[in-house]
Structures are given as structure tokens and as C-alpha cells.
Design a protein around this nucleic acid. Structure first.
Length: 213
DNA sequence: AGGCCTTCAGGAAATTCGTG
DNA sequence: CACGAATTTCCTGAAGGCCT
């Protein structure tokens, strides 16, 4: 690969990121707290043909707002022009997920009762969709949002994760850190408490890959 | 290391598009 | 038809390069 970052790749990656969330260029900018015109076509090239680039600050804000990591963004850059594949994933409401019978011991989707939903995301085959209910994850995820989750994805500190406890509780939070004995979780919504769980209280951790719709 | 000066991304205003 | 969302056009603040 001769060029690492081309103008077309960067903008295509930004578009692809927006598409994953069902957002237009202006919608993505607004979600990131930027002026809605920031990513418009007309802002990508000036009349004299000069190429315009998004600032690193804007990209940082978009990654912050979407929860995508730099590695995921760079994967989109490398996959310039590739349309995300539409695939059908099992879907369940966050509220129902804790009831039991929907997951195996490792957190993989199993059993009956799952709906199906089409998502614009080439997530792995083990991924499934959760419909957010309530405001406990605001402002990042709102009631009715769909998040794509994978129990097969490796989790690192700072990742957004869904955790099932042995008592049947389902938590969606940010992974603060994992120690030998504990798992520390930070709430998205500051109105809700952070949690520190003992390792043996955790039945599985799945990483939130994308939000959609 | 400091000041000037050019460049340019992003904001403001204006306009068009889309949808009930 | 009205309202909001999306987009274009124009403008400005400030970042950053260059030359002492």
C-alpha cells in the first residue's frame, strides 16, 4: 500500500461509520457535537479543487460519540468504498435479556424467543442485537436504539460492554478495568452508580461493537 | 524564539429537500 | 403547506509555517 491515508479513504470511512449508525453526514456531525455542516460534500473539496480534510479534533469527537475505536476506524479507512453488508442478527430487548434462557454459559445467543433484525454491520457471526430500553445509558444510547454486541470479541479497558451477572442481572457499561478478582464498570449515565463486581459474580462479558438505526 | 502572514476547517446564514 | 433536516455558500478565527 503506497499511501496510508488518502483523502477519499478518510471521507469514505467517515461515511461508513455514519451509515453503521443510520446517520447522514450532518447527523453524524451533530451527534459528535460539531456543526452539522462539518462533513458535508461541499466541505470536502473547495471550488478550486483543493482537497479539504476533517481535522483530527473532529475525528476524535466522532469516535468519542460513536464509541468506535481508532482501530475500527482505521479498518474502515482500509476498506475504502466497501459497502457494509446488511445481515440479519438475532434481536432481544435489554429488559428481557436478563430473564434467562436466551444465552448459553459463554454469553452466546441461544434458545427460542429471539426476533430477527437487519443491520448494516459486518459484525461477526456470534453477534446479536440488543434493543436499549430506559435512560440508564443516556446520553450515549437512548431508548429504542439498537446495539450490536459480540461475546466473541476480546474486551479491553475502555470498551463498552454488556455484562451478565450470576444473579441474572444484565448491565451495559464501560469497562473501567479488570483485575484478578474484580471487574470495574462505569455507567454511561452519571445519574446511575458505577459498579465493582467480583469475578465470580460475572457470568460473561460481551463487547458492544456498534450502535445501529 | 518571536512575529507576521497565509491557509483552511468549521461556523453562520441562506437555500433546498423531504415528509407529515 | 409548514416544519425540520440536509446541504451550499460565504466568511472568520486561529493554527501553523516561514523568515528573520
Amino acid at each position: 500500500m503506497a499511501e496510508i491515508l488518502t483523502h477519499a479513504q478518510i471521507w469514505a470511512a467517515l461515511d461508513a461509520l455514519g451509515e453503521r449508525y443510520g446517520l447522514s453526514a450532518s447527523g453524524l456531525a451533530r451527534k459528535a457535537g460539531l456543526d452539522p455542516t462539518t462533513f458535508n460534500r461541499s466541505k470536502r473539496q473547495s471550488a478550486d479543487g483543493h482537497l479539504r480534510w476533517p481535522s483530527t479534533e473532529s475525528i476524535a469527537k466522532v469516535l468519542q460519540a460513536t464509541g468506535a475505536g481508532l482501530d475500527e476506524f482505521m479498518a474502515l479507512v482500509a476498506a475504502k468504498g466497501a459497502r457494509p453488508t446488511r445481515s440479519s442478527r438475532p434481536l432481544i430487548g435489554l429488559a428481557q435479556a436478563g430473564v434467562g434462557g436466551f444465552f448459553d454459559d459463554a454469553g452466546f445467543a441461544t434458545g427460542a424467543g429471539w426476533e430477527e433484525i437487519d443491520v448494516l454491520a459486518d459484525a461477526d457471526e456470534h453477534s446479536y442485537a440488543l434493543e436499549i430500553s430506559g435512560d440508564s445509558m443516556a446520553p450515549l444510547y437512548r431508548d429504542g436504539d439498537i446495539v450490536i454486541v459480540s461475546p466473541a470479541a476480546p474486551v479491553r479497558r475502555g470498551d463498552r460492554v454488556v455484562v451478565k451477572t450470576t444473579s441474572g442481572e444484565i448491565l451495559a457499561k464501560e469497562l473501567r478495568r479488570q483485575t484478578a478478582r474484580t471487574v470495574e464498570l462505569k455507567s454511561f449515565n452519571p445519574a446511575y452508580p458505577d459498579r465493582v463486581l467480583q469475578k465470580e459474580e460475572v457470568s460473561w462479558i460481551a463487547r458492544i461493537l456498534w450502535a445501529s438505526q
